[in-house]
Design a protein around this nucleic acid. Sequence first.
DNA 1: GTTTGTAACTAAATCGGTTTAGTTAATATG
DNA 2: CATATTAACTAAACCGATTTAGTTACAAAC
Lengths: 340, 340
Amino acid sequence: MKRVFLKDIAKDLNVSKTTVSLVLNNKGDENKISQDTQQKIIAYAKEHSYVPNQLARGLSRGKSETIGLVIPNISDIFYARIAGFIERKAKKLGYTVIFSSSYEDPKKEGELIQSMLNRQVDGLIIASTQQNREEIQSLKANDFPFVLIDRHYPDNETDYVIVDNFEGTKKATAHLLSLGRRKIGFVTLKPGLEVIRQRLLGYQKALEIFGIEPIDELIHEVSRENYEEETVNGIKQLVQFPNAVDALVFATHYLTAAGLRELKRLNIKVPQEVAIVSFDELEAFDLTDPAITAVTQPAADIGNVAVDILMDKIKGDAPLTQMGRVLNIELAIRRSCGSV
Amino acid sequence: MKRVFLKDIAKDLNVSKTTVSLVLNNKGDENKISQDTQQKIIAYAKEHSYVPNQLARGLSRGKSETIGLVIPNISDIFYARIAGFIERKAKKLGYTVIFSSSYEDPKKEGELIQSMLNRQVDGLIIASTQQNREEIQSLKANDFPFVLIDRHYPDNETDYVIVDNFEGTKKATAHLLSLGRRKIGFVTLKPGLEVIRQRLLGYQKALEIFGIEPIDELIHEVSRENYEEETVNGIKQLVQFPNAVDALVFATHYLTAAGLRELKRLNIKVPQEVAIVSFDELEAFDLTDPAITAVTQPAADIGNVAVDILMDKIKGDAPLTQMGRVLNIELAIRRSCGSV
DNA sequence: GTTTGTAACTAAATCGGTTTAGTTAATATG
DNA sequence: CATATTAACTAAACCGATTTAGTTACAAAC
C-alpha cells in the first residue's frame, strides 16, 4: 500500500504533473483536458487512493485550509463547547482547526498567534486576553482574516462576536433586586478583562436603576490563579460584613461553584439567607442544591457566527466594514435566586 | 514590517541559504561556521524577527512538529480536559495539536485520521470509536507513531493509555452493595464500545462477589443519540419494576445527569429511596443535590502519559514492545450513595 | 498556402525551507 | 615541495504540490 504522489500518477499514465494536478483539482474542463484523459486520471487516483500532501499544497498555494483557534483554556467547558461548534462548522467547509490555550497570558497568546501564522493558517479565531492590542492591530493592518470571540477590543475596529455582558449581569442583578434583595454582593475577577468590567458595570447599573447605593465592600475581586481560596475568603467576609449580603452575583461559572461550595460549608441557606446568580454556567447547574440561576451564553451561535464571518473574510467577499455581533444572553431562572 | 525569509537573510548578509539555515537550526558549530558569521546571522534573524515557515520546513523535513488528536467530542468535558493536558505538554515540547471530533462515527473517524496524515502529523493520539480496527492496524503496520487513549482494541497490540473501567464500576457497585443496597440498576449505553462492556462486566462482577442474582431487566441501555429521553424512560421503568431498584449505577456522566434530573422530577429521594453512583463526573457533581459519588478519571495522567509515549515513538527511541498503561481510577464518595 | 484559432497538453518556475555533496583557500604533515 | 587535512563556506537537488507561459498538431479562414 505505497503512497502515490502526483509524480507517480503522471509517470504511470504518461501525462504531465500539470495535467494530473489540473484534473484532480476540477480544473480539467476549463483547461480543456480531454474527457478521456480526465477519466483515466480520476480512476487511477481513486484506485490508488491518492490524497494530496497538504503541506506541499499549502506551501505552493500560500494557504493551508486550516484555521487557528486561540482561547484562554480548552478545558473550560465554555470554550470547549465553542471549540466544538467551530470545529464542526469548519470541518464541514473543508477546514481543519488547530487550537492553543493561552491561559490568559498575553505573551503566550502573542506567541501562539505567531506560531499559527507560521503554520500558514488561513484565518484566526481568537478569544483574547485583551492585552495584545498591538498584535491584533498588526493582524488588522496586514489584512489578515481574523475574528475575535467572547472578548474584543472595544476601541479597535475589528470583527467580533461577543455576548452582551453588561446586559447579562444587569438582568441578573435586577432579577435579584426585583425579588426584594437589597444587599447584593458581586464576586468577580480582578480587573483586566473588558468582559469582566462590563459585568461589573451591569451589576452597578442595576443597582442604580433600583436606586440602591453601591457599597464598595460588597464587591470582591479574586485573582484567577488563586480563585478558590480567595473566593472562600471573600464569601466569609461578605456574609459577615456589618451589613451582610442577602444575595450574590458571581461573574463566572467557576467562581459560582467555589462560592456555593463555601456557602454550603458555612451552612448558609441558599436562597433563603443568600440568593445567588451566576454569569455563565456549568453543565450540572440545574442539578445543584439549589439549582443555580444563571446567565446562559449562546456557545453555538458564538462558534457558528465566528466561522461564518471568518469564512467571508478568507474568501474575500466580506463587506468592507468590520462586523461586530453582540449576541443576546438569557437568564435561566432556577431556585438559587429564591423566585421559584 | 515585511516578513523576511531565509533567502533575504542570505542575500543581505552575503552568505548562502545553507549557512543561514544551518546556523538558525543550531547546527552552526558542527558544520564549522565561524562564530563571526553565526553571530551576524543570529542577530539579523532576531532583529527582523525571522520565523521559519512551518509548511516549508515540514515539507522538506518530512515532518511537521504537529500531533493529531482524534476524540469523540471536544465539547465533552472529559475529553476537553484531556485535550488541555495534551496540548500543554505537546506545546512544551514544541508541538502543535490539531484536533477533530468523530462524534462516535467510525467512518468519520477514519476520514479524520486520513486527513491528519495528509497534513503530515508526526503522530496521532486517538480515542477511537473502537470500530476502526483496520485503520488502526494499518497505522501500526506502517510503523506510524500513535497512541490510543481512553479506548483501545484489546486484541490488537498497540500502545494505549486507558483507565480500569472494569474496576471502576466494580468498585462503585460494591460500594453500594456494602451499604446494603441489593436491587441495583445499571443505566448504560447500548453495546459497541469495549469500555462500556467493561463497565457492565465490572457491575456484574460486583454482584457476583456479593452473591446477588443478576436481573436482566435492571440493566437499561440507551442510545447515544437519544440518551436523554431514553434515560428518562429507563428511570421510570426501573423505579416501577416489580422489584424496584434501591440503587443505580450510571455508566457515564451525562447519563447520571439525565438520570438524576428525572429522579428529582419523580420526587424520588436520593439516596434514601434510590442511591446513585456515576462513572466519570461533571464539574459540579460535588454541588448537586445530593452530591454525586463518582468514579473519577485521571485526565491529567491520561494526557501526559499519552504524550510521553507518543514522543518516545516519534523520536524513535521507544522500546520495541508496545506499551499498555492502565491507570487507576478512584471513587469519590459523596452523599448520593447514602454512606455519608 | 499562409495565417489564425483552438484543443490538448507540458516544461519549468515557484512556494520556503533542508540537506547532500562539493569547493576553495589556508595550514599541517612527511 | 607535494600531499593531506581542515576550516568555512556554497550550489544545487529535493520535499510535493500549483501555476505560468508556452508548445504542438490540426482544422478553419482568408
